[in-house]
């Protein structure tokens, strides 16, 4: 914990730092670089056939919040952007919540199995990663479309007499994202529950806690780091999801990811796409800071 006073140990620590060089290079070139380009592009003019004109312009940022009516040219608040953003946030939050509700019992179940069974279950959890996201999403499409397995089955059993429209709704996007991101919730939760000392349950049970109280006052607070990690891992990609809303939400129920893609594609407005990306990044960053502060704060108030 204290700083290494031994010069030898210091040298070793320095050499250890060198080991992180590849990671640092990758971070600078692979993450910071593109982000910087996005930031620069957001302050340029859109090119006629996509790309950008190298001329300073704040039009893109203006267009993030304001919109000019295409018929009479009056300025108005860009509420469509807000709608899309709100839908994205809502779906991402719902996905995170639902992935947690399904993922927690799953992770608990796996963590409490014998070592052999545990490996097998974890293996099963990772299997979906082997298949392309696109294909998996199309598979869900097959299940929930009007002539899909689910509706065919329900019609056959007579529970319904007309197919339930699920495809190309927010519900479809939500189901698809929950399915796709569930493993990202289960794995960190498993890691946290695996470290959880089950003897604490005995202690809590002995000290008059009911099962519900054990969950609330012992299990959840102790595995909280896993819950935080899982929620972040699900929420961030869900917020920026592109493939799932595209295939299961159709063109109508756009999420922010699709909207950004639209600017770079058919919209041929790269600066607006770049500006929207930066907004998304900032919102996610703020949300994460608030979330981790809030989550960690309730745990460490005694040190305050």
């Amino acid at each position: 914990m204290s700083a290494p006073d031994d010069p030898k140990a210091r040298d070793e620590a320095r050499r250890g730092w060198l080991l992180s060089a590849p990671a640092l290079v990758l971070l600078v070139v692979g993450a910071s670089g593109p982000l910087l380009i996005m930031l620069v592009y957001s302050f340029l003019e859109p090119g006629q056939y996509g790309n950008v004109e190298w001329a300073l312009s704040f039009k893109a940022w203006f267009n993030v919040v304001m919109t000019r009516d295409i018929f009479d040219g009056t300025l108005g608040f860009a509420d469509a952007h807000l709608t899309i953003f709100w839908r994205s946030a809502k779906l991402a939050l719902l996905t995170t919540l639902f992935a947690f509700l399904v993922g927690f019992p799953t992770a608990w179940f796996i963590a409490t199995r014998s070592p052999g069974a545990r490996t097998a279950f974890l293996f099963l959890i990772t299997i979906p990663f082997w298949t392309n996201l696109l294909i998996r999403t199309f598979a869900i499409n097959q299940i929930i479309r009007n002539e899909g397995f689910l509706n065919t089955f329900l019609l056959w059993t007579g529970i319904i007499d007309a197919p339930i429209v699920m495809l190309y709704t927010d519900f479809a996007v939500f189901v698809g994202m929950t399915y796709v991101y569930l493993p990202l919730m289960v794995l960190p939760l498993f890691a946290a529950i695996d470290r959880f000392d089950m003897r604490l349950l005995q202690a809590g049970y002995d000290l008059y806690a009911s099962r519900w109280q054990l969950l609330r006052h012992v299990i959840v607070p102790v595995v909280k780091p896993g819950i935080i990690a899982g929620s972040i891992l699900v929420f961030i990609p869900a917020l920026g999801a592109y493939v799932t809303p595209r295939i299961l939400g159709g063109g109508r129920n756009m999420m922010i990811g699709n909207f950004i893609e639209l600017q770079f594609g058919q919209g041929r407005n790269w600066p607006l796409g770049a500006a929207l990306s930066v907004v998304l990044l900032v919102v996610v960053t703020i949300a994460l800071i608030v979330y981790t502060r809030f989550a960690a704060g309730s745990q460490d108030k005694s040190h305050g």
Binding site: D197, R199, L200, Q202, A203, G204, L207, V218, P221, Q299
Partner: peptide, 14 residues
């Protein structure tokens, strides 16, 4: 009836 456990089993978050 309360127990003092061999491992103490104190709640680490409290």
């Amino acid at each position: 009836v309360n127990t003092v456990f061999q491992s103490y089993a104190l709640f680490p978050h409290l």
